[in-house]
């Protein structure tokens, strides 16, 4: 397309980078880097929202850009980094599926996402409708990240990245949700991270590790007696 204005090109670039970042997250095993990737995702979202706000002149988009900057670029990564330092979880264990396998699954997921987004994009009247497919892909890729990881921390990063994808989807399909809803969602995300922070310390206190394979005893045929007092820390798995 020759006639595409510069800001729209930049917006599409942001969208493409978001997709790339999702793949990077899928492959990344260092938890600290994972959080940094999440922060970069936040930066991209912030830039995209600003560009869109400037393009459409919608005032609430400036507000939601500010919210993104405060919450997703500054506050959440800071909280997560602090948690990582305090809990000393730096590396995720080997994912359930090896990296190349995960990547292949990711590719299929992206194809599926674009197929899913097609009818929506066809109806959208926004300038950014081509990005809807990418938003859906980011959501689904985060989902894959959550499924294939064992460490609680990586799953949470996946969860937050899914929320970012949803936010991007809302933005590209409808220029953002009503402000009251966006505030509510942001509040929920913040509370979720705080609750998880508390929760991680509880898991650590109990198991000496944040590896989720400890959390697999509650099966249907679980016969573990509830009468015995909790045996603390099964064994000192290193983190």
């Amino acid at each position: 397309m020759t006639g595409t204005p510069l800001d729209l090109q930049l917006l599409n670039l942001c969208a493409a980078l978001l997709l790339l970042l999702s793949f990077a997250m899928l492959a990344q095993r260092r938890v600290v880097t994972l959080v940094s990737l999440l922060a970069i995702q936040g930066v991209l979202l912030f830039v995209a929202t600003l560009l869109l706000a400037w393009r459409t002149g919608e005032r609430h988009l400036y507000l939601s850009a500010a919210l993104t900057l405060a919450l997703k670029v500054l506050l959440l990564p800071w909280l997560l980094h602090r948690l990582i330092r305090r809990l000393q979880v730096y590396w995720d264990t080997e994912p359930l599926l090896n990296i190349s396998g995960t990547m292949l699954v990711g590719l299929l997921v992206v194809i599926f996402a674009f197929g899913l987004a097609q009818p929506i994009a066809a109806l959208a009247s926004t300038a950014t409708r081509s990005a809807i497919g990418i938003a859906v892909a980011v959501i689904l890729l985060s989902f894959v990240t959550m499924i294939t990881r064992r460490k609680a921390m990586s799953q949470v990063v996946g969860f937050l990245s899914m929320e970012n994808g949803l936010f991007f989807g809302a933005m590209s399909a409808t220029y953002g949700m009503p402000m009251i809803v966006e505030f509510g969602v942001a509040l929920d995300v913040l509370v979720a991270v705080l609750v998880l922070g508390v929760f991680f310390f509880q898991i650590r206190e109990q198991f000496d590790s944040l590896d989720l394979h400890h959390l697999e005893s509650l099966k249907e045929s679980s016969t573990s007696s509830k009468t015995t007092p909790p045996v603390s820390a099964q064994s000192g798995q290193e983190h």
Partner: peptide, 10 residues
């Protein structure tokens, strides 16, 4: 704060 309750919560 039992292991089982943490698992359930997670």
């Amino acid at each position: 704060r039992t292991p089982a309750s943490l698992e359930a919560g997670w």
